[in-house]
Design a binder for these strands. Structure first.
Length: 304
RNA sequence: GGGCGUGUGGCUGAGCAGCAAAGGCAACAGACUGUAAAUCUGUCGGGGUUUCCCCUUCGUAGGUGCAAGUCCUACCGCGCCCA
């Protein structure tokens, strides 16, 4: 029995390819997947939405080279997609790929999504309660914090008391379940995971972001995408702005809130900020093996 | 040439007698329990024995005051108006 379990544990593998925005994850993952008989699961919180293509840097059919991709276009952009949904669907996708006898590659830059799989965190089964949220949104951080302290002292201890999002969510969970927020409970997966990070320094990344932005802006491609999302798909400006970065600033530009140049600058600097935040997240995870190029990644995978 | 206005930290911009000088941006670091491209935090003139002390700063040079980005004078730069 024990032996059997062990056998199982070592036989299921998962490769994670991660890195900051514009670091070249897509290109590398395709090459690796082809080489090692893999299929790809996207771990990107924007690419899950239908219609968010150019601005989210979604891979095209042609670029896929026949490698199946999962978790792309699985959500309606009018609705919110969450980590929990991601976790569920990604797990299913991993299983599917394993059954086919192929190697699953989890590829993306959304740290929280990746963590939900890699650490198998258990998320409390509480859906957002928008009525409650709109009520609580009127309260100050201090009031929310005091409220949470009464409801769940343990969670109040380690929560960021100045972050309304987190406070709200914690209160929502307690009120809905009638129980404290569960501990972060990392149920170890039976997966044997290799995490590969693409290393790029800030300057290089800024250049790559700049180049990519120019390409997306060419022939008004990205502007038209956002325009269509608003005019044809009927997505509100507010919702488009919520998507952040390219969607946020192109939407603002189309509304006449900012001019073209300002739009470009904002996308550039905000993307650089975003890349930094991603790195702050990834740096915490000491299991990640950082590589400079494809060759190094291939070598790592060979050994593995 | 005359009149009015303006010059503040990397940028922007408040302050108009008690200031190492609000806010914003940028920069740097960090957090992360179902919105995560989101949300949030800290540092940000220099140095130290760092809940406190010292030094150097608000165009330049003088002056008044216990005390001056803050008031006065002159000069320099910039802006607008009149000639």
């Amino acid at each position: 029995m024990k032996n059997n379990y062990k056998l199982q544990a070592t036989s299921y593998k998962l490769i994670v390819i991660l890195g900051p925005t514009a670091s070249g994850k897509t290109g590398m993952s395709i090459k690796l997947a082809k080489k090692f008989n893999g299929e790809i699961i996207s771990a990107d919180s924007r690419q899950v939405y239908k219609g968010l293509d150019i601005g989210s840097g979604k891979i095209t059919k042609k670029e896929m080279w026949g490698i199946p991709h999962y978790l792309l276009d699985v959500a309606n952009p009018k609705k919110r997609f969450s980590v929990a949904q991601f976790q569920k669907q990604a797990k299913q996708a991993i299983k599917k790929i394993q059954i086919k006898g192929k190697l699953p590659f989890l590829v993306g830059g959304t740290g929280f999504y990746i963590q939900s799989i890699v650490d198998g965190i258990v998320l409390p089964e509480v859906k957002p309660n928008w009525v409650l949220r709109s009520k609580l949104e009127k309260k100050s951080n201090e009031e929310l914090f005091i409220m949470l302290k009464k409801l769940d002292p343990r969670r109040a201890q380690n929560i960021d008391s100045k972050n309304p999002h987190r406070l709200l969510r914690a209160i929502e969970i307690v009120l809905s379940t009638g129980k404290p927020v569960p501990q972060i409970n990392q149920s170890p997966t039976s997966l044997e995971i290799l995490q590969i990070g693409i290393k790029k320094d800030g300057k290089e990344l800024a250049k790559l972001i700049n180049k990519r932005l120019a390409a997306r802006l060419k022939n008004n491609a990205m502007i038209n995408e956002v325009k269509n999302l608003h005019d044809k798909t009927k997505i509100s400006w507010k919702r488009l702005e919520e998507f952040g970065l390219e969607y946020k600033f192109v939407a603002q530009y189309l509304q006449g809130k900012i001019d073209y140049k300002e739009m470009q600058q904002k996308i550039q600097t905000e993307s650089e900020h975003f890349a930094k935040r991603q790195m702050t997240w990834f740096k915490r995870d000491k299991r990640i093996k950082w590589v400079d190029n494809y060759k190094q990644a291939e070598k790592l995978l060979r050994k593995y």
